[in-house]
């Protein structure tokens, strides 16, 4: 092994050979399929560059970081999260692309940061519709503007919302008020050219789930139109959730979608949509403040629009910002909102 890696990591391996071998042996006892060659590849291709980055930035933290990386990599390989047959290849990608760039955070709290990044990538990879690569890109942008692991990871939660975890909306907006404005702006993807103050941006985003802070005009547009802002959900046979064309209803401010066999809470905004299994939630079928007729004409606040594909809708329900409509001919839920032109 020492011939294949060099530098700080090679020194680390040499110094801790007995301990590391014992760790591997113990892991192999629990997981007999653990492949030593595959682990060597992980160490060489993925772990060694991270250790080199930390060694360059904070040599004193090399040992603790390398120990944490070794232990976590061993655990991940044993569970097939990394390696040739990885269940979540984005984790290894995150280790290769992101961890070397946050060596300053690793040096402060190696296990916490490595674990958090790994778990975030895992959760993003597991969520249908989420965009872990987008999250990685945002985190790389956050690396140079965050001085401490705590700030970096909190910004990461905001970035995860932006990367498709819509159900984090409320918590992420709260975090935006707590972190430094410069960090929040990067996490929200607000262009540097946007001169609006953060509080104003957050207030407008909080009021309108379909307003993307990254594409927000400095002055609100006067013209607004009804648009289908998202179509979410699909047939179970094609990787979706629904066995039959679903029906939608409201439960307070939320949408509840059911297909006759099960019920889901639908959380959606401009960043994505997620479904969450629920049971026996009481629902209502109200469409106010929208109006909808059988021809697919939808009206709200003196603005109307006809959507032929929504004619003869099967069900409809609305909260204060969004109308959800389903059809007998589709497994998707169409979301309509009044958005700026």
């Amino acid at each position: 092994m020492e011939g294949l890696v060099s530098g700080a990591f090679a020194e680390f391996l040499e110094t801790h050979r007995a301990e590391l071998n014992a760790q591997f042996a113990q892991a192999k006892q629990m997981r007999p399929n653990l492949d030593p060659d595959a682990f060597k590849d992980v160490l060489r291709a993925t772990v060694a560059p991270i250790v080199a980055a930390v060694a360059q930035r904070a040599p004193d933290a090399t040992r603790t970081t390398a120990l944490a990386l070794y232990a976590i990599a061993l655990d991940l390989l044993g569970q097939d999260f990394i390696g040739a047959t990885a269940r979540a290849p984005v984790i290894a990608q995150g280790w290769r692309e992101l961890l070397p760039e946050i060596s300053h955070h690793l040096a402060s709290a190696p296990r916490a940061v490595i674990g958090a990044v790994t778990n975030a990538l895992y959760n993003l990879a597991q969520t249908p519709g989420a965009r872990p690569h987008e999250w990685l890109a945002t985190m790389r942008a956050l690396a140079p503007v965050t001085n401490a692991p705590t700030a970096f990871l909190r910004a990461g939660q905001i970035a995860a919302w932006r990367a498709g975890l819509a159900y984090f909306r409320v918590g992420a907006l709260d975090l935006c008020k707590q972190v430094e404005p410069a960090i929040a702006r990067v996490a929200l993807g607000i262009p540097a050219t946007n001169a609006l103050d953060l509080a104003t941006i957050l207030a407008r985003v909080a009021a309108d789930p379909w307003l993307n802070p990254a594409a927000m005009p400095e002055k609100p547009g006067q013209a607004r139109a009804l648009k289908i802002v998202a179509r979410v959900g699909a047939f179970r046979g094609l990787g979706g959730l629904f066995q039959t064309p679903p029906r939608v209803a409201t439960a307070g401010a939320h949408f509840v979608v059911q297909d006759g066999t099960a019920q889901w809470l639908l959380v959606a905004d401009c960043f994505g949509a997620t479904f969450h299994r629920v049971e026996k939630i009481a629902t209502a079928k109200r469409v106010e403040p929208f109006a909808l007729d059988a021809r697919g004409k939808i009206a709200r606040d003196k603005v109307s629009q006809t959507f032929p594909e929504l004619a003869d809708h099967a069900s409809a329900a609305a909260n204060s910002t969004t109308l959800a409509v389903t059809s007998e001919l589709s497994f998707a839920v169409s979301l309509i909102a009044l958005v700026e032109n």
């Binding site: 296990r111 958090a116 778990n119 939660q157 984090f168």
Partner: peptide, 22 residues
Amino acid sequence: APPALPTFDVADLYRGPVASAE
């Protein structure tokens, strides 16, 4: 107890197969 809607915690982002803390 009547069924309740789930609540979401942003901290869940960092919970997963790896124990984060030492």
